[in-house]
């Protein structure tokens, strides 16, 4: 109802600012990596927490909504510029419990593309 069309000035990002910011971002990343390596030195090998059997029996609800107790209930966001979205489950931990939450991600995201490709490949076999 309250739609308004503002003739916008094109916000130009200052290239110098952009370059500086990029550099700082890289520095933070680098520093994070190094810090992490230092922290991990001498620690025992990791326990694998990622579940292997999570998906058994769930594939039939694959595209349905409302899997699990706490699925997200947000509506499909249509404003992604014509890009279709697919539903994924995000695996998160609440304390020690694992939970999945549904989300929509753009189809052209590298994450889903690989899955799709493999699904397609598997179907062909």
């Amino acid at each position: 109802e309250d739609e308004v069309h503002v003739r916008q000035k094109v916000a130009e990002v200052d290239p110098v600012e952009e370059a500086n910011f990029d550099q700082e971002l890289k520095a933070v990343l680098q520093e994070s990596m190094e810090q992490r390596r230092l922290e991990l030195r001498g620690r025992p090998a990791l326990n694998m927490m990622i579940p292997m059997n999570l998906f058994e029996g769930s594939s039939r609800d694959h595209h349905g909504r409302g899997i699990g107790g706490e699925s997200g209930d947000e509506a499909l966001d249509e404003e992604t510029g014509g890009n279709k979205e697919v539903q994924v489950k995000v695996l998160v931990k609440r304390g020690n419990k694992q939970q999945t939450k549904q989300m929509y991600i753009p189809q052209n995201c590298s994450l889903v593309q690989s899955t799709k490709q493999k699904e397609a490949a598997e179907l062909q076999e």
Partner: peptide, 10 residues
């Protein structure tokens, strides 16, 4: 990362 066969990400 996503699972190889499922629409699950973590």
């Amino acid at each position: 990362i996503s699972a190889k066969t499922e629409s699950v990400v973590v």
